[in-house]
C-alpha cells in the first residue's frame, strides 16, 4: 500500500477547539477536511505533520445558508457535492455550482470540501509524485530541494493553482472567514493569493477557513465555468476559466469578470475584460467580437507552463477557445463548458 506517515489525529468538535489545537502545535500541525488533497500528498511524503486536526466533527462549519440580503454563507466543510447540488448556489452563483460539479469524480466530490478546495495545495508534475520518484529526479524548491524543473534556473516555484472553485469565487467577489487563536479575520478571496507555488496564500498555515461568503449578485447575474481536461471525470483542470457577466435591464453587459486557473501559482484575473464587454448585448455581432477580443486578451495574458501534466503549448492554444465558449455560455445562461 501507499502508506500514510505516522501522525496523531485530533478531532475537535468546535472551531475554538480546532484553533486551540493549531495554536498549540504550531508548525507541527495541519488541518484536514475531506482529505482528498492532504492524504494523497502525505502518502507522497509531501507533508509530514506530527498532528493532523480534522474538521469533520466541527458541525458548525458545515452547510449552506442564505442570508436575508441574499448572500450565501457556505460552511468550509460543506462538501463539493452539496455545493454543486444546492439550489441556492445553483440559482445565485451558477458558476460556483458548475465548477464544484466538475471537480474530480463523484466520490471525491462527496468527500472533498468547499474550504479544502480553496486551500488546495498547488500542483506540479514534478511534485505530485511519490517520494521515490522525486528522490530519483532530484528534489525541487517546493519540497526539500533547491532547483525548479519547470523553469530552468528559476528561484521561485510556479506550481499551478488547480482548484476549480477558486476562480469562480474570485469572479463572484467572495469573502473568506479565517479563524485562529487570535480571532476571526475576513479576507476578500481575490486578496488571498500570492504568486508563490510553495504556499500561494496570504494566510498562516495555522489559520482555519471557516466560511465562504458569496455576496448577492446583480439582478442580471450570469455565470459559467469552463474546464479543459483529458477525461470527462477525475482529472484536475488543464485549464479552467470562470466568468461573471451581469446583464443590465437593457440586456447589455453591465459588469463582467474572467478568472482563470491551472496556469501559474495563483488564479489569474484577466485584465480589461469588463471594459471590453460592457455595453455589448449578447446575441449581437458587437458582443461576439468583444468576446473574441477578450479571448485574445486571455491568450496574451494567460501563459500555461510545463508545471502540470499536459502539453503547455496546447493548453495555451485552448485558452481563447475555452474563454470564448464560456463567455458565450454565460451569456446564454448555460454552462458548464466541458467536453462531456
Amino acid at each position: 500500500m501507499l502508506r500514510l506517515p505516522k501522525f496523531r489525529l485530533e478531532e475537535p468538535t468546535t472551531v475554538e477547539g480546532a484553533t486551540a489545537l493549531m495554536a498549540e502545535h504550531g508548525e507541527d500541525a495541519m488541518v484536514v477536511a475531506g482529505g482528498t488533497d492532504l492524504w494523497p500528498n502525505m502518502k507522497h511524503g509531501l507533508f509530514e505533520p506530527k498532528v493532523v486536526v480534522s474538521l469533520k466533527r466541527v458541525e458548525a462549519m458545515r452547510g449552506i445558508t442564505v442570508d436575508e440580503d441574499g448572500s450565501l454563507r457556505i460552511g468550509a466543510t460543506t462538501t463539493l457535492a452539496e455545493m454543486a447540488q444546492s439550489a441556492p448556489v445553483q440559482a445565485s452563483a451558477p458558476a460556483l455550482a458548475q465548477a464544484a460539479s466538475l471537480v474530480a469524480g463523484p466520490q471525491l466530490r462527496t468527500m472533498g470540501t468547499a474550504g479544502g478546495n480553496v486551500m488546495l495545495d498547488t500542483r506540479c508534475q514534478w511534485y505530485n509524485q511519490t517520494h521515490f520518484w522525486r528522490k530519483s529526479l532530484g528534489y525541487c524548491l517546493k519540497k526539500d530541494g533547491t532547483v525548479c524543473h519547470v523553469v530552468a534556473g528559476g528561484r521561485k516555484c510556479v506550481a499551478a493553482a488547480s482548484n476549480d472553485t477558486a476562480p469562480t469565487l474570485m469572479s463572484l467577489g467572495a469573502t473568506l472567514a479565517f479563524a485562529s487563536a487570535d480571532g476571526i479575520r475576513e479576507v476578500p478571496v481575490g486578496e488571498l493569493w500570492k504568486a508563490d507555488g510553495i504556499w500561494n496564500k496570504k494566510a498562516e498555515r495555522s489559520e482555519i477557513l471557516t466560511e465562504i461568503r458569496v455576496p448577492k449578485q446583480a439582478a442580471g447575474h450570469r455565470g459559467a465555468y469552463g474546464k479543459l481536461r483529458d477525461r470527462g471525470s477525475i482529472d484536475y483542470p488543464l485549464f479552467g476559466c470562470a466568468v461573471r457577466m451581469d446583464l443590465g435591464e437593457d440586456g447589455a453587459v453591465a459588469g463582467a469578470d474572467l478568472v482563470c486557473v491551472a496556469l501559474v501559482a495563483r488564479p489569474l484575473r484577466i485584465k480589461r475584460v469588463e471594459e471590453l464587454l460592457v455595453g455589448k448585448t449578447p446575441g449581437t455581432e458587437a458582443f461576439d467580437s468583444a468576446v473574441q477580443e477578450v479571448a485574445d486578451l486571455a491568450y496574451a495574458q494567460a501563459k500555461p507552463m510545463d508545471n502540470i501534466p499536459g502539453d503547455a503549448e496546447y493548453r495555451r492554444e485552448l485558452v481563447p477557445v475555452y474563454v470564448r465558449r464560456t463567455l458565450q455560455a454565460a451569456a446564454r445562461g448555460e454552462g458548464p463548458v466541458h467536453h462531456v
Binding site: L2, L9, E11, T36, W39, Q107, L108
Partner: peptide
Amino acid sequence: DKGDCGACTVLVDGKPVLACLTLAAE
C-alpha cells in the same frame, strides 16, 4: 491507494466514498 481508481469505494452513511482516503478513525 490515493483516490484515482475507485476500487476501494465503500458506502459511508449511504454515500460512496473512497476508503483509501478516509481514516478509519474518521
